[in-house]
């Protein structure tokens, strides 16, 4: 089992992205997905950072793929997807329509926002050229187990969400803009103010969700450290780590040590807590419960 770093979901400055990419080049991860997943309006601000990042990561021996947008509606976004498919790197599709731009038989990856819930869909995607699939985070362990087995039969590597805020929904409406009484077209890029998303709590003050432009995520950080042995036994090939603005290097290094057997899940959790004081964690999906639940490997 090894580690894949997913695309950065948030709107960071080019300086911050450069530091992030430099950190990833040195991190003990096998592969990195680059590109804009959430909002095509952000891309012009940072797309020039992508080619040097590809080069740096490949020089460091990482496999690199480019993600599509999660929701492709505009003509400009469709052209962008076609351009992506022509770049010569594996594309990670996060909207099924991207397949229209990938010639039959060309290998591609499937991201966690494509609905792969069963063997039929997995086999159909494999027949179309999928070689790596990151499963939707809400899948219960029984489904993961069945799909990991089906994937082995058709040469597809299976990834499971390992760590980071869970991507829960995508919309045509920008909630960041809405919270500033603006529409999407006049957003003035307010999502840049919140490098890990903007907190949305309940009226009772319960920490609940965060919004990130058109995307909604869990406020708790999914942490599947205590499920690694179970996932390994199922035949899962990789854990996905989702970038966050603080302490991401510690997360990558910690999970690499966990996979190598150099540390235990409890010790890793202590490290993660120290690196991010006050953060809430969750792992309910990993045991087939509400995603927000946090059991940290407790029996039962």
């Amino acid at each position: 089992m090894d580690l894949t770093v997913g695309p950065n979901l948030f709107f960071w400055s080019t300086e911050k992205l450069h530091r992030h990419h430099t950190e990833l080049a040195a991190a003990p991860v096998a592969r990195v997905v680059l590109g804009e997943l959430v909002c095509s309006k952000r891309l012009p601000f940072w797309q020039d950072s992508i080619p040097p990042a590809i080069e740096a990561l490949q020089e460091a021996g990482k496999e690199v793929a480019l993600t599509t947008l999660a929701l492709i509606t505009l003509k400009r976004e469709r052209r962008l997807t076609a351009d992506l498919a022509a770049m010569g790197l594996p594309v990670e599709i996060n909207d099924l329509s991207a397949l229209a731009h990938i010639p039959e038989g060309t290998p591609f990856w499937v991201g966690p926002l494509v609905n792969v819930y069963n063997e039929g869909t997995l086999r159909w995607l494999a027949g179309r050229g999928a070689v790596r699939i990151c499963l939707p985070p809400e899948l219960p362990p029984r489904s993961v187990s069945v799909l990991a087995e089906a994937a082995r039969g058709c040469g597809v590597a299976i990834e499971v969400w390992g760590h980071g805020r869970l991507p829960l929904a995508i919309s045509a409406r920008c909630y960041h803009a809405r919270l500033h009484d603006r529409a999407k077209d006049s957003c003035q890029f307010v999502c840049a103010e919140d490098p890990d998303g903007r907190d949305v709590d309940t009226l009772d003050g319960q920490k609940f969700l965060v919004v990130n432009g058109v995307q909604t995520l869990s406020q708790a950080h999914a942490c599947h450290a205590h499920h690694v042995e179970e996932l390994r036994a199922m035949g899962v090939d990789a854990l996905r780590l989702s970038p966050q603005s603080q302490g991401f290097g510690v997360i990558c290094a910690g999970y690499a040590r966990l996979l190598a057997g150099e540390t235990g899940a409890d010790d890793l959790l202590a490290t993660l807590r120290a690196a991010q004081p006050g953060a809430a964690f969750c792992d309910g999906f990993a045991s087939g419960h509400p995603g927000v639940n946090w059991r940290a490997g407790a029996a039962g």
């Binding site: 929904a169 995508i170 045509a172 309910g284 999906f285």
Partner: peptide, 21 residues
């Protein structure tokens, strides 16, 4: 639905039950 349909796990995050599953 204000979210893209079939692509929303808000309900399963809070309750374990989702539209997709």
């Amino acid at each position: 639905c204000v979210m893209a349909e079939g692509r929303c796990a808000l309900s399963s995050y809070a309750t374990g039950q989702s539209p997709n599953m």
